[in-house]
Amino acid sequence: MKQLARRTALIGTALGVPIGAAILGFSRTAHVYGAVQYCLGPEPLDYDAGGNFAITFELLARAVVYAAILTAVALPFGLAAQRRNTGPRLAAAIAVAAVAAAVVLVVDNPTSDKVAFFAEYFGRTDQAAAHCPAGRPPGSFQWLW
């Protein structure tokens, strides 16, 4: 019974960390493009087929990169948890992955660049300056951008 609980915890952590990281990366990219749409005006952006493909690729790529980074950080603790002290080592794996996720969120900051790029690309620099003078939506957390 103890062996089953250990395996279940290991499998749950081994699946939870990369899936959670992928969701975090996907939502980070979706949030960036939401900010772009807010800053460039209420009318829909005219993404062509190439633009839609690029955004979809970026959503998936950032999800994969986040999953790879956070899994690599948590992997040593997960491997060590197979032998003994499973609970504390899995808790350490989750804690280290959470700290790494916070660092990756702060370091990976594409919002201002994306707003400036798409404002220039679509010719909406005046709208971007009016809606988002700092290159991000007003009222957003400064530390997150």
Rank of each mutant, 00 (worst) to 15 (best):
I69M: 05
C132M: 09
P133A: 13
T86L: 00
R6E: 06
A61L: 15
T125A: 09
A30V: 14
A81Q: 00
R28E: 15
Q3F: 10
V73K: 08
V64G: 11
G12Q: 11
G50V: 00
A130M: 05
V115A: 08
Q37A: 15
D108R: 03
A134P: 00
A119F: 01
H31N: 14
A63I: 02
V103Q: 04
L10H: 08
H31W: 15
V99I: 14
P110V: 03
A35E: 11
S140W: 13
V96S: 07
A61M: 12
P76N: 12
A21M: 15
S140Q: 14
R62W: 00
F57E: 03
P137F: 06
G123L: 01
F118A: 05
A67S: 13
A129E: 12
A30Q: 15
L59N: 12
A80T: 00
E58K: 11
I23V: 15
A95K: 05
C39E: 12
A9L: 06
L144K: 10
I19G: 07
T86G: 00
Q3I: 13
R124M: 03
G78W: 03
G16M: 08
A80R: 05
P18H: 06
F118C: 03
D46N: 13
L79M: 11
A98I: 02
E43R: 11
N109G: 02
A9Q: 05
L144T: 08
W143P: 07
D108H: 06
F57T: 09
F118H: 10
E43C: 03
A119T: 01
A100M: 02
C39D: 14
N85F: 11
A91N: 02
P88C: 02
G16R: 10
F117N: 11
V115E: 03
V32T: 15
R84N: 00
Y33N: 14
L40K: 09
Y47S: 06
M1G: 12
Q82L: 10
A49H: 04
A97D: 01
A130C: 05
A67L: 07
T29Q: 15
V106D: 04
T8P: 02
P18V: 06
G12N: 10
L4D: 14
P76W: 13
R83L: 07
A100R: 03
G16C: 12
L59H: 13
S112C: 10
W145L: 11
Q127S: 11
G123T: 05
Y121Q: 07
T13E: 05
M1F: 05
A67M: 08
A14I: 04
T86C: 01
R136T: 07
G25A: 07
I55V: 15
F118V: 05
P138W: 05
